[in-house]
Simulated assay, not measured.
Amino acid sequence: MNIYFKHSNQRSFGTYPLKGTACRDAILTAAEVGYRAFDTAQMYRNEAETGAALKETGIPRDTLCVTTKVENDNYDESKFLASVEASLKALQLDYVDVLLLHWPPADFQIEGSLTLLEQAHKRGMARNIGVSNYTVQMMRDATRIIETPLVTNQIEFHPLLNQDVMLAAASETGIPLSSYCSVARGEVFKHPIFAEIGAGYGKTAAQVVLRWILQKGVSINTMSTKPENIAANFDVMDFTLSSVDMARIERMTHMNYRIVSKDIVPWAPDFD
């Protein structure tokens, strides 16, 4: 079972690119709204703020689901476990619930970093492990390289990008998907269809988009600094999109609008 589904009712609060007071305030608001899953990363440079804010919430540790990600600069054997220890110290935690590899290695040879990830799990640094931005072949290979199940592959997932191939790979490999860029960094709001559908349910365009992702079997990561948006992004469990509306939204995926590509991230793989 996807750890995000199990521990967070399918919704996680993302912290990128928040820093300082903005990060603290957003996390405190998210916790008050009801979020119990929080997503950070070494690359975000906000683990310390995230850890301090989570401690400030007073939420019992066993009800939290904390995810962080190892930066690919730390995939060397001499750095990996030390970097995870540093993350735990910054987060003020004895372990994280989910530890992800943030990207495939620059040479796309995944065995070394996966083996180190599994070592972190065996040492108790992480209750669960997963990956981000893996291709279909990488997902297949990962299931052969390590024995510990991967609880997620976190990828760009929104209604303006067709990810049917990745959904099929998730089913094939047993590695569930979770989303980032869930509202395509605001691009979805340029398309009236989402607000039009939302009007029929008494929901916003963003809520329709997030609900569509959930109904595709993908858990969601969302970020906002506005309290009303943080609350709205969490409030997506009390309605179900009809098959007709799901199909209408599905047609938007053929735009294949991808945000994260080699133009932005030179070390990105050739995505499926």
Rank of each mutant, 00 (worst) to 15 (best):
N2P: 11
N2T: 04
I3Y: 09
Y4Q: 06
K6Q: 14
S8A: 15
S8V: 08
N9M: 14
S12D: 13
S12F: 10
S12Y: 09
F13W: 15
K19P: 06
T21A: 14
L28G: 00
L28S: 12
A30F: 00
V33K: 14
Y35D: 12
R36I: 12
R36C: 14
D39C: 04
T40W: 04
T40Y: 02
A41M: 06
A41L: 03
Q42S: 08
R45E: 12
A48R: 03
T50E: 11
T50S: 11
T50D: 06
G51S: 15
A53D: 07
A53M: 07
T57W: 08
G58N: 12
R61A: 15
L64D: 05
V66L: 06
K69Q: 13
K69I: 02
D73S: 13
N74D: 15
Y75C: 05
Y75R: 10
F80V: 11
L81E: 13
A82H: 11
A82R: 14
S83I: 14
V84W: 05
L88M: 09
A90E: 09
L91W: 08
L91C: 04
Q92N: 08
L93N: 04
D94C: 06
Y95S: 11
Y95L: 03
D97V: 07
L101C: 13
H102S: 06
P105M: 06
P105N: 14
P105S: 11
F108T: 13
E111C: 01
L117T: 13
Q119K: 15
Q119P: 14
Q119F: 12
A120N: 06
K122I: 12
R123G: 03
G124P: 00
M125V: 07
N128Q: 13
I129P: 02
I129D: 01
I129Q: 01
S132F: 05
T135C: 03
V136M: 03
Q137V: 07
D141W: 08
T143G: 13
T143C: 06
T143H: 00
R144E: 08
I146C: 05
V151S: 06
T152M: 02
Q154E: 04
Q154F: 03
I155T: 13
F157D: 09
H158L: 11
H158T: 15
L160P: 07
L161H: 10
Q163H: 12
D164I: 14
A168N: 11
A168W: 03
A170D: 00
A170H: 09
S171L: 06
E172I: 07
T173A: 13
T173N: 01
G174P: 04
I175P: 00
I175V: 10
L177A: 05
Y180S: 05
C181H: 11
A184V: 07
R185W: 12
R185T: 00
R185M: 12
V188Q: 04
K190N: 14
H191P: 02
P192N: 06
P192T: 05
I193Q: 02
F194W: 10
E196H: 10
A199R: 14
G200E: 09
G200Q: 00
G202T: 04
A205L: 10
A205R: 09
K216D: 00
S219H: 02
I220R: 09
T222N: 11
P227K: 13
N229E: 05
N233I: 12
N233R: 05
M237L: 10
M237R: 15
T240F: 08
M246P: 11
I249V: 07
M252D: 10
M255D: 11
I259M: 13
I259L: 08
S261W: 01
D263S: 12
A268Y: 03
F271C: 01
